[in-house]
Amino acid sequence: MKKEKLDYDGLTAIVVILFGMLYLTMSLKLPKASIGNAMDPIYFPLGLSIMLLVIGALLLIKSDKSHIDRIFKGMKHQTEKEKQVTKMVSFTCAIAIIYGLIFEHVGFVLATFFFMMSILYMTNGKKHLTNVLVSGIFSLGIFALFNYALGIPLPGLPFM
């Protein structure tokens, strides 16, 4: 009974119900159409939110609620690997957001070089030569491929 497999059904159901309620409120607040039937654009979202709520409720009834509590308790003592993955995912998201913020200012090549270097530093560690090579070839190669071969313009270097 030490390492019983937890299922996330109960937790999922609660999140889904909350989301369904939010969507329902937003659907009700949608502006009425000025042409045709005023409620026309609302029916479909309304129907969806009701269905989602019903299914969420069914899932909640079916689920073993004791698991919810145990999941929260279990969070404190995650395995090393789980912690590692959480860290890596959060780091990737943070880098991606910075990537987005600098992209249009410093151009594709520099921004992408930064992005690749950061992610490689995380996955590949301090093998700087490999990291620089992969990042450099990737950002320049993709830039050349898109701009010249595919004809999809990417923002170039800031001073060009």
Binding site: Y99, M116, I119, T123, N124, I142
Partner: peptide, 18 residues
């Protein structure tokens, strides 16, 4: 994989921008 996964990530972002 530690080199390939970053490449897949990089490609996803370029793809979305395109």
């Amino acid at each position: 994989a530690k080199v390939l996964y970053p490449i897949v990530l990089g490609l996803s972002f370029v793809g979305v921008y395109a």
